[in-house]
């Protein structure tokens, strides 16, 4: 027997089939997958009780690697699939893995409506500012002026702030972190999973092979360093001037409120009829 230290992730990965994974060297998706798994391990959730649903894109390849109930759906549609699962089996912990293009472009409508319903699931948006899987086209979060294969002269589109969007649409837990801050990501995801209602965690991610190369951001480690040096915790922003905040990634939990959860509201509706039936008897 080789002397390999047993790691937490080993229990949760599908070892027998799906490795090596599809992600490029230097991609931060694997780091975030580690954070997600460790958050689940800390919470000691039963693997049978977790359903992981994703859309299409680099990050959306994640479910195939984990040993849960897993569903890799259509581009942008992870949330409505997840809604059907959650309503049918409300006891399932539903985690949706999605990307910037998947969640806010093709799936933008589903995203805002899932937020509005406040249905109990956690959407983890791995925001790498580009469509990686199709080779590097600009997404709704590609910074204005940046280059992509479809913005060779610099992107003229304004960007979406995923957290602002989620908060405005009615999500009851909204947070941002970066892939570099793996321990913080783990802790925020833990909070998001324990939150009753629709929770959104934006994980700022790095795509050195395409976005990084097109915009001269350096290799994987360089982009990790960028996240470290150019992000600030929410608390620290209180003392910062707008000039100091310019271009900074703000990390932390922006919103955490209690509100009627969708499946519970529906269960209340069903209970009314059952009570009537019992009263009749």
């Amino acid at each position: 027997m080789a002397n390999i230290p047993q790691k937490v992730v080993h229990k949760y990965l599908r070892h027998n089939k799906k490795f090596p994974h599809v992600w490029c060297p230097g991609c931060s998706n694997g780091t975030t997958l580690g954070s997600i798994i460790r958050a689940i391990a800390e919470l000691n959730y039963d693997r049978d009780g977790i359903t992981m649903v994703s859309g299409i894109g680099c990050s959306s390849r994640m479910p195939v690697y984990v040993d849960f109930n897993t569903l890799h759906t259509l581009h942008g549609r992870a949330l409505p699939f997840a809604t059907g699962i959650k309503m049918t089996k409300p006891e399932q912990k539903v985690i949706v893995i999605t990307g910037d293009g998947d969640a806010t472009a093709i799936g933008g409508n589903h995203f805002i409506h899932a937020c509005r319903r406040n249905i109990d699931m956690t959407a983890i948006v791995l925001n790498n500012n580009i469509y990686g899987m199709t080779g590097g086209q600009y997404s709704p979060t590609t910074p204005t002026g940046d280059r992509a294969t479809t913005s060779p002269y610099g992107n003229i589109d304004p960007v979406f702030d995923i957290c602002e969007l989620a908060m405005a649409a009615g999500a009851t837990f909204v947070a941002r972190t970066t892939a570099f801050h793996a321990i913080e990501t783990q802790s925020i995801i833990k909070d998001a999973l324990e939150h009753k209602g629709f929770s959104v965690v934006e994980v700022v991610s790095s795509c050195p092979v395409i976005y990084g190369r097109l915009n001269k951001k350096g290799d994987g480690p360089e982009m990790m360093k960028y996240m470290r040096d150019n992000s600030v915790p929410l608390k620290a922003t209180e003392k910062m001037t707008p000039e100091q905040l310019e271009g900074k990634i703000v990390r932390g939990i922006f919103k955490r409120v209690e509100k009627q959860e969708y499946c519970e509201a529906y269960a209340g509706l069903v209970a009314k009829f059952q009570n009537k039936e019992e009263a009749k008897k």
Binding site: L71, T73, L74, P80, F81, A82, G84, M87, T88, K89
Partner: peptide, 15 residues
Amino acid sequence: IASICAIIGASLAGA
């Protein structure tokens, strides 16, 4: 689009 996706999700969960 959401409707067809939701029913597929529900069916995968046994409905």
